[in-house]
Design a protein around this nucleic acid. Sequence first.
DNA 1: TTGATTTTGTTGCACGCTGTTACAATCAGA
DNA 2: TCTGATTGTAACAGCGTGCAACAAAATCAA
Lengths: 245, 245
Amino acid sequence: MAIPRLLVVDDDVETRGMMTQFLHQSGFIALPCDSEHSIRAQLDAGRVDLILLDVMLGDENGVEICERLRREQDVPVILVSALSADHHRMAGYQVGADDYIAKPFNPELLLARVRAVLHRAQRSASLVYRRSVSTFRFAGWSYDAKLDEVTSPQGYQVALSRKETALLKVLLANPHIPLTREEIATSLDVTGEGQGAEASGRAIDVLVGRLRGKIENDPKHPEMLRTERGTGYVFTADVQTEEAS
Amino acid sequence: MAIPRLLVVDDDVETRGMMTQFLHQSGFIALPCDSEHSIRAQLDAGRVDLILLDVMLGDENGVEICERLRREQDVPVILVSALSADHHRMAGYQVGADDYIAKPFNPELLLARVRAVLHRAQRSASLVYRRSVSTFRFAGWSYDAKLDEVTSPQGYQVALSRKETALLKVLLANPHIPLTREEIATSLDVTGEGQGAEASGRAIDVLVGRLRGKIENDPKHPEMLRTERGTGYVFTADVQTEEAS
DNA sequence: TTGATTTTGTTGCACGCTGTTACAATCAGA
DNA sequence: TCTGATTGTAACAGCGTGCAACAAAATCAA
């Protein structure tokens, strides 16, 4: 089995970052999400083996999201919540969650649960692969996930390197959501399994600058890929996805 | 003013108890609540000057409750949450919360915030940002809250830094109302998550000076952003707001 | 394999933003 | 008027970011 890919869904940047990093260190590929929208983007963008879903997601409700996801596809879901009361737990199981963990949790416990669920999922061979979303559109641009091509509003073909493409994907999957450099770096590592090799220096900054140079009209005054000083970067553009026919 | 009556809304018995007791010792009347229902009961039963509302309320959502309360009446609300990330903070402000405090908080800080909000409320000057307002116009100037752009009467685009923008927002939300440096500083903190330490030195004065330099015709003799000696600053210009369509 | 080309990470410097400080200017009250 | 408090502001420092230039690594072609 390939390295499991987990979605970490939590709308708190710090919590999300900590969990993502911890899981990453534990040998998983952890992808940060913060909304149902970003979950679906990730599901469309690639294989997802397990979703760690926080129950309290700002104005969204994790239990409801879980219910909807369950109706549509077969991704294993572990609900994470600060609510440990029994009836909440039951509510979680009733909507099809594979497990339920109360915050704050012991990291080792989290790992154990994750492995258990992955193990079950592996046996029942219920790994979900991408739906057929093939095209992302934003601010006149488009990105074809199948051909891996980026097209400018004027119709020019723009060549992006692998990392640049990976960065763009992360951004497209998380529009309007500030991402820390750490979160971005984690997501970029998806290709190589090497978990070390990152965290040093300003690679993300430079990468962002390079992507800006290719997709921003005026790289000096970026309008889509904006800096969130003291935090990281945000992609401020509405993103539409299109299914392949 | 009579002794302020506060509602302490938290679904955790211990937290609720500690906060209630602490506020009581600090000279307030603190009434414990644990749900939207009990809040409404208290509101119906008597005067309430301020609500301290936990964001995580079992299966209820503090932000949503705040939004509903705000639509119906004019009670000041301070949201309390373990989620400290900026976008949560912003979500709080967008639904009309008067302030936002992250747990765990310094008791003194809580008191300071409570007093500040009560103080503002007393003068019916709440720093509420209305959600759907997109454009502010004043003395020929205009500020687009969506694009974050300021345009001079002559049509020039004026670039403001983050803090300058934040200051302008506070002023626009409270025209003709003298604001203390502390109130301003509290509002500016929306950006920087550090709720611990502000208040040191003359940062506000300098910031005001810088904003004056950008939006006053003659910064030496300010006409809009005036000094209220011994108090703070007032924005003396009529402000028209435009709702987004 | 080798060498060329492309991609990616690192480093150093410049620049903008922000808070601090020190001193000048101004104000209020005696 | 004098005096002390308050405010204006220039100068400076610290920090984070943008970016060019370089170095290392990966990829490709033969």
